[in-house]
Design a protein around this nucleic acid. Structure first.
Lengths: 199, 199
DNA sequence: GTCTATATACGGATAGAC
DNA sequence: GTCTATCCGTATATAGAC
């Protein structure tokens, strides 16, 4: 059983992911949720309040919807990093290269978001970085002594965000794959120092 | 001496960079260009035609406005890669972390751009990658035999785009610096194999 | 707390004189 | 090719009955 409020947030989440925040109208949200304008404005006085709820919802979805499935059959911490990137690749394939990271898309669409929105974007990025940071932290014994798990996790995020951006623009996985392959090469050189070179 | 058309494109370019494409209104463009609606619609029948002109304009600006200044005092091809990233860092500092790559921002704002727009986004990305690819091509003798200059250049672009995205969201250079430092570490390990590890 | 109907503002685009 | 004035659709948000 779902409440009207839950259906509104879910509808808004989908529409914003598909079209962006600006182009998504409250009328569309109301229609997809099979609700009415009065109900929406009762739960969310402004459109931005709805966006805040969507961004809070993404915080609760990262582990069960993204990280969990990606790590389902992968135990090695370093491989989990690339399993996560592999999931984004799968989403690109499934969507015919239309997929975009919803957080990254909102972050770039809104050039100067109001503080509550920006704070939630930051929390979403922090959570993603934190998940990847766990992997590198679990593999510290295979990394150089001066390696910084959080720094590496941030690098993984920039690679994902940049890769998804280019995949959608090029309608091709080439750039995404090139970036991820380079990242894999880097991590391989980090984890197995002094033996690479010829592969 | 500038034509009305040139002033319109320049005004649109600035406003779109500041606010995004959707939020920029033709009324704003006309006002900043000190022109009138009739003139704009004479030169650009639709708002999208104006966007196309802006994206074509960016193609002509990359070398003189971005790449040229970044490489002014840098001859080493590998250092030129990081000088270019350094310029983006400078733009972030100067703008109090509000800067965003205009091409990347438009690419993510428009979830499914019309073909002429998408083609121009691709040409802009291609041109950026091409400039960095030149650097790696000029340094092939210092790279592993199987290194691919274009692949590396694409990786640099994802790092820049992801880094700029995070810098603007966090209002901080930390994530940008972490990504660029990781990239530098990678390139260092590529160019000086079998000697790294302790730095 | 849900619904219908609507106010109010603003956007892109156009008309037509000059 | 430039200007003034304006149309028309649509968007957020509100009013107020139930």
């Amino acid at each position: 059983m779902t409440t009207t409020r839950e259906r509104l947030v879910e509808s808004a989440r989908q529409l914003i992911a598909e079209q962006g925040y600006g182009p998504t109208t409250v009328a569309q949200v109301v229609k997809r949720a099979d609700a009415h304008p009065g109900s929406l404005y009762h739960a969310f006085p402004t459109k931005q309040d709805l966006l805040v709820a969507v961004l809070e919802n993404y915080l609760t979805r990262l582990r069960p919807q993204i990280v969990g499935p990606a790590w389902q059959d992968v135990d090695d911490p370093i491989e989990r990093v690339f399993a996560l990137l592999g999931l984004y690749r799968k989403l690109l394939v499934q969507s015919d290269h239309l997929f975009g990271c919803p957080i990254g898309s909102i972050a770039l669409e809104l050039h100067d978001p109001d503080p509550p929105v920006r704070a939630l974007l930051v929390r979403n990025f922090d959570q993603w970085i934190g998940a990847v940071e766990e992997c590198f932290a679990a593999a510290v014994d295979r990394l150089p002594a001066d390696a910084d798990p959080k720094k590496l996790a941030t690098f993984v995020l920039t690679t994902m965000e940049g890769g998804v951006m280019l995949a959608r623009s090029y309608r091709s996985l080439d750039a995404f794959d090139a970036a991820v392959a380079s990242l894999r090469d880097y991590i391989a050189r980090l984890t197995t120092p002094r033996t690479g070179g010829t592969r």
